[in-house]
């Protein structure tokens, strides 16, 4: 088999494995709840569904019972669960956004979250690496050291704390309004994308502002080490001009950084959930908050499942880029 095909197959099956394990975890959590979820949901359905006719309530009740299938053996429950989530996409009604179904609520929010997640990790990765390589190559040691100290000081602080501090600063010191709205926007895909990008700019800015430190610090370290590598010194002695050498250092240092981008996705995801909620961006984080505030277990489970899918897919997309930048995957050799 072609090495690239093997690589893609390998990464793809890993992504599938991630999704399957995520599903199983979701199932286990849903069955281990310390109360009978189906009955709780039905009682809430009845209290919420005042506007519904008796028939509609009965239909929903039946659907919920079927969804949880608590009277059947666990293995069957598991298979039904897998079928519902993977094949039919049937995850029951949402109470926080009643009477919309969980599937519809999440599929509306998911593109927003994916856009923000991918943009935030990619943009802060580029900015961090860009500044990192400049700091490693510059002759102005003082500026690069100050930058590094700032980054090292910010790096250990949890993102949540940074975001809250920024919120205090933004709302109390700058006295600026927080943008909101945009959830139920419809239009052509291009219009949607334009609108979403505009709407994503503000949360993106916050995520990037506090997200570039990690790749900056490691890029600087890698590039400083790369400068001493034999092949860099050799090309210097071949008479390579400074520009070419700098590009070569950059090109070769960026490779190990790529792994950081892929592995960091789930950490960026935490940040983006929080930013979505604090700054009213209509993504998964926003929905999750609504689900928690309304004790909407169906929606929580759906979010858990889709969060897994989102990170698995984003990781897979980034994995696909890797062979393009590293020939050692395309053409494995004797080492």
């Amino acid at each position: 088999m072609h090495p690239v095909a093997r690589y893609i197959l390998q990464r793809g099956s890993l992504a599938l494995l991630v999704v399957w394990i995520g599903l199983t975890v979701t199932f286990v959590v849903s069955r281990l709840m310390p109360f009978n979820a189906a009955e709780l949901l039905i009682s809430r359905l009845i209290s919420q569904g005042v506007a519904l006719t008796g028939e509609e309530i009965e239909a929903m009740k039946k659907q919920l019972l079927e969804l949880y299938g608590l009277d059947k053996p666990v293995v069957e429950q598991y298979l039904v669960f897998l079928r519902n989530y993977m094949v039919t996409g049937e995850m029951g009604p949402s109470f926080a956004f009643f009477p919309t179904s969980v599937r519809d609520v999440i599929s509306k929010a998911l593109p927003w979250s994916l856009l923000l997640l991918i943009m935030a990790s990619v943009v802060s990765w580029f900015i961090g690496n860009g500044i990192g390589i400049l700091a490693a190559l510059t002759k102005r040691r003082r500026i690069s050291n100050i930058l590094e100290n700032v980054a090292i000081a910010f790096q250990p602080i949890p993102f949540a704390v940074l975001a809250i501090s920024f919120l205090i600063f933004y709302a109390l010191v700058l006295k600026l309004p927080i943008p909101s709205g945009g959830y139920m926007i419809t239009g052509s895909p291009v219009e949607m994308l334009l609108y979403m990008s505009r709407r994503a700019a503000f949360p993106l800015m916050i995520l990037v502002m506090f997200g570039w430190f990690g790749s900056f610090v490691s890029m600087k370290a890698v590039a400083l080490k790369m400068r001493e590598e034999d092949f860099i010194i050799y090309s210097f002695l071949q008479g390579a001009p400074t520009g070419s050498i700098r590009y070569m250092i950059f090109r070769n240092s960026i490779l190990p950084q790529f792994t950081i981008l892929v592995l960091g996705l789930s950490r960026v995801f935490i940040g983006s959930l929080l930013v979505e909620y604090i700054f009213n961006y209509p993504g998964i984080g926003y929905i999750l908050q609504g689900a928690i505030a309304n004790a909407d277990y169906n929606l929580m489970l759906g979010v858990l499942f889709f969060a897994t899918i989102a990170t698995a897919v984003a990781t897979f997309i980034l994995d696909l880029v890797y062979p393009l930048i590293d020939p050692r995957i395309r053409y494995p050799g004797q080492g």
Partner: peptide
């Protein structure tokens, strides 16, 4: 280890903490 690295731990924690 790779799979657990990719799995989003935070929503899972939220669901667990909230239900229990």
């Amino acid at each position: 280890v790779d799979i657990v690295c990719v799995l989003p731990g935070l929503p899972l924690l939220m669901v667990i903490f909230y239900t229990w």
